[in-house]
Amino acid sequence: MSVKSVALPIRIRRFNPGAWRNVVAGWPLNLKIGLTMLMTIALAGIFAPVLTPYDPIIGDFQNALDPPSWEHPFGTDNVGRDVFSRVLYGARIDLQIGFIATYVPFIYGVALGAIAGYVGGWFDTLLMRLVDITIAFPFLVIIIVILAILGPGIQNMYIAVFAAGWTIYTRLARAEMLVIRQQEYILAAQALGYNRMRIIFRHAVPNLIGSSIVFSMSDFVLNILLASALSYFGIGVQPPAPEWGAIVTDGRDWLLQAWWISTLPGFAIIFTGVAASLIGDGLSKIISQRNTPVL
């Protein structure tokens, strides 16, 4: 009897699609809208070759600087490339940057903060000084300076973000850990004689990760904006790759003759940004409602 009652909830979580539907139904509206918007962008990027017949890199000089039309919804640029196709293919680059630049630092940022908050001592002091020094530089400035050392390009941009983008997660995770460390379920885990790494990562981290997940959605937007700003300076993603910021930059010299090149791709960035903000909003609502710890 008792064996059955333990096994039951596990089986529901794994195999019952109805339960999953109930979870989705309980989500706040802005989370659902945000996820739908982000999925739309992702699908547009994945299915770009099906959605558009034009090549994002090779232009057709005969159709240069054509205004928006049914054939070219966002017009064409100065070398005759279809701007809409470039925006679709650009989704692949910008979403990839958003995810990698946000969630790689997220992982070790949270891990470092959780460990520092739990063990304290010299490790904590040293790490926090390192955080203080890193955040003393404006984020864009430190990225530009690191790129000045490494040289331009998407690879080096990732290295720069990995070096500078973890601090906020470390601070969030550490602050939460200082509170969680005192709670009964952690004390219980300690009394059971679990080792420190198990307590930190199996018991504490699932409960302190919420604020970092919510922040990661803002970070996602910031990283896409960062990539587009670096393209504008010419030190980020290198041409002819259709990164959204790079497309806007391409149109800079044609503002008066062809306003569409610079203006329309910007809306792709805004659309993605709003999607991520809505998701962040919804997630923070869910997390503030949840008050039982995950054991």
Partner: peptide
């Protein structure tokens, strides 16, 4: 607010210049 914070600064700058 979500919209204005997602605008790339140089994009908005170019738009206002235009």
């Amino acid at each position: 607010g979500m919209i204005t914070i997602s605008m790339p600064a140089f994009w908005l700058g170019l738009l206002l210049i235009l």
